[in-house]
């Protein structure tokens, strides 16, 4: 269980990373924290010609408040964000969800943007980015663009990133006054990818529920101010629309049921903590 051969380059700046991506396209793989890429390399599921290490690019580091957003660079590790003093105030949903990402021993290396790039449908970070209407900053030699999380996650481990593009950062809107947030997850063991994870954002008369672990991508549903049986019906329709996965760990029917029940509980929790 050893990786196949590849070249390695430690990019010193963004241009160097862009150059490697431009030259090799899908045969190049960015490594940041490596917590997901490394097992795939060792199992030879992924066989890049070149691995581009971006963790020494100074411009990719740092968490910054930028207008209404918090900008998290591609070099920011999950543990670093979890320890960031502004997290609970500005990004309370991530404050609740990050402890569910792997284990302390993997959060220490794994990056926020790396989790987004990998786009595992059961991962917590893509789910939160979707719930929070975050934007990904992509760049290549040819230019820069921004893609919303809703447009970014296109399928099972598949994203809108072009082969020559680097995720430079993710921008997440700061918590608006009065919004309430909640996160719940169920997995077989603590630290596992979710069987079902729910993230809810409630603000005024709007309620957004995002669920992960159920379908090939995290999915978002707007539930407005619905309550009572109407909310149950809406969640039921959402659950059925998800094309829920049936696997070793849980049936599709089970996943749908958790969307209904855990989804409702999460919405109520988020509404209750609106301030």
């Amino acid at each position: 269980m050893k990786p196949a051969r590849f070249d390695y380059i430690r990019a010193g700046d963004i241009a160097e990373a862009h150059a490697a991506l431009a030259d090799h396209g899908n045969d190049a793989r960015i490594i940041a924290g490596g917590q997901t890429l490394m097992p795939m390399l060792s199992m030879r599921l992924v066989r890049p010609k070149i691995v581009v290490d971006i963790m020494h690019v100074a411009a990719l580091h740092g968490i910054a408040a930028s207008g209404a957003d918090i900008r998290i660079g591609a070099g920011v590790r999950q543990a670093e964000l979890l320890a960031w003093p502004g997290l609970a105030e500005h990004l309370p949903l991530l404050h609740a969800a990050l402890p569910w990402v792997g284990h302390a021993q993997t959060r220490s290396r794994g990056t926020v943007c790396g989790s987004a790039a990998h786009a595992d449908p059961s991962a917590e970070i893509p789910l939160c980015l979707l719930a929070l209407d975050a934007t990904l900053e992509l760049s290549s030699r040819r230019g820069r663009r921004r893609v919303t999380a809703a447009d970014f996650f296109t399928g099972m481990m598949t994203t809108a990133r072009a082969d020559n593009e680097l995720i430079e950062a993710v921008r997440i809107p700061k918590k608006p006054a009065g919004a309430g947030y909640a996160f719940n997850e169920f997995g077989r063991r603590h630290g596992d990818f979710a069987i079902v994870a729910c993230a809810a954002v409630a603000s005024g008369d709007t309620t957004r529920l995002a669920v992960g672990g159920v379908a090939d991508t995290p999915a978002l549903h707007e539930l407005g101010a619905l309550g009572g049986k109407e909310l149950d019906d809406a969640l039921d329709a959402f659950a059925w629309a998800l094309d829920a996965r049936d696997d070793l760990h849980a049936t599709a029917r089970y996943r749908r049921e958790l969307v209904r029940r855990m989804g409702r509980a999460t919405i109520e929790e988020a509404r209750a903590c609106r301030d």
């Binding site: 059925w240 049936t251 089970y254």
Partner: peptide
């Protein structure tokens, strides 16, 4: 004794899909 297996005994029959 997996959660999904046990839940099958708790959750009862599922609502019919809307479509």
């Amino acid at each position: 004794l997996t959660p999904a297996k046990l839940a099958g005994h708790i959750h009862g029959a599922e609502r019919a899909p809307p479509q």
